[in-house]
Design a protein around this nucleic acid. Structure first.
Length: 201
DNA sequence: AGCGTGATGGTCT
DNA sequence: GACCATCACGCTA
């Protein structure tokens, strides 16, 4: 059985972002800080696929201070600030210098909901509003630049483990808010678990 | 339920 | 100086 809550190994990340985006659904992100532990299930992802993908920050192999983590070997984190206030968490995949990454867009709380609520001060009383979006879940897990570029295979405060053996159906759609991506904007590189309420809006 | 809007700052040209 | 892989809230209905 492969329901042992084992940390994903280096090899898991050695694949293109589209395949990884599908394979990451149902996996569990573990976040530890200040002696607290939060666990969430990945339910919504987007693939950003190498130099040719016009939607990607690494389009044309654009390597800058910000995008450098995308060029690392699969299994690292790429975290960036968006709109001046929110962080987005990505899982880098594929080989070194082949900039693939999977944006995590939605997660379902499994453990440490009290800590998630403490990190998210909103009026909505709906639990799903705590983690159904890339900026929301980063805030919920207290993820910021300090974790940018960290190694998910070795790091002890942020990593990913195998999920359970439950069955689910995967749906796909175009990616969100990439109107600038021309012929790449309609590619169905967003993947999410069908009928899961923690999928982003 | 859906739309409009303001918040807010790092990054790159 | 413009651009963002966003979000929350308040307003209409």
């Amino acid at each position: 059985m492969r329901c042992g809550n084992l940390r994903l190994k280096q090899e898991f990340y050695h694949k293109d972002a589209v395949q990884a985006a599908k394979d990451l659904l149902g996996k569990i992100i573990v976040r530890k800080y200040d002696g607290k532990t939060i666990k969430v299930k990945i339910v919504d992802t987007e693939a950003y696929c190498g130099a040719e993908d016009k939607a990607s920050h690494a389009h044309n192999n654009k390597k800058t201070k910000r995008t450098a983590p995308m060029f690392k070997v699969g299994g690292h984190a790429y975290i960036y600030l968006i709109y001046g206030m929110y962080y987005c968490l990505n899982v880098v995949t594929a080989a070194e210098n082949n900039p693939h990454a999977v944006l995590i867009r939605g997660v379902e709380p499994l453990e440490g909901l009290n800590y998630i609520q403490e990190n998210r001060q909103i009026k909505s009383s709906k639990i799903e509003d705590l983690t159904n979006g890339p900026g929301k879940l980063s805030q919920a897990l207290k993820i910021d630049k300090s974790l940018d570029g960290c190694n998910l295979v070795e790091n002890s405060s942020l990593y990913i483990i195998d999920g359970g053996t439950e069955e689910f159906e995967i749906e796909s759609s175009p990616r969100i808010n990439i109107d600038y991506a021309e012929d790449y904007k309609d590619k169905k590189w967003r993947f999410f678990i069908k009928n899961n309420k923690y999928v982003s809006k």
